[in-house]
């Protein structure tokens, strides 16, 4: 069990829903831990699914020329930070 901020919980649920990770719950995700076994390769269908869900829920588009991509997808906390930063723009 981990303590998630409200936004982290919201993003965790978005990840679980968009990637069909129904076998885990938001509380199982530690905010600082790697989201995927080998990091999330941007080749993967997961990245596209997640990008689609993010653009639908938060209204901004991810771009692969963003040099921060590896960081953005590295953990729940980083992803949440990025989403919060984009929302304020």
């Amino acid at each position: 069990m981990s303590d998630l901020s409200p936004t982290e919980r919201e993003v965790a649920n978005l990840i679980i829903d968009s990637l069909a990770l129904e076998d885990i719950s938001a509380a199982d995700i530690a905010p600082g831990e790697a989201l995927f076994n080998d990091g999330l390769g941007l080749d993967s269908i997961d990245a596209l699914e997640l990008a689609m869900a993010i653009s639908q829920q938060y209204g901004f588009q991810l771009k692969s020329d963003d040099p921060n991509n590896a960081k953005i997808f590295s953990s729940l906390r980083e992803l949440t930070n990025h989403i919060e930063a984009q929302r304020q723009n």
Partner: peptide
């Protein structure tokens, strides 16, 4: 190799 929709559009 554009990947995300916005990359492809650009």
């Amino acid at each position: 190799k554009p990947f995300f929709p916005e990359d492809i559009r650009q």
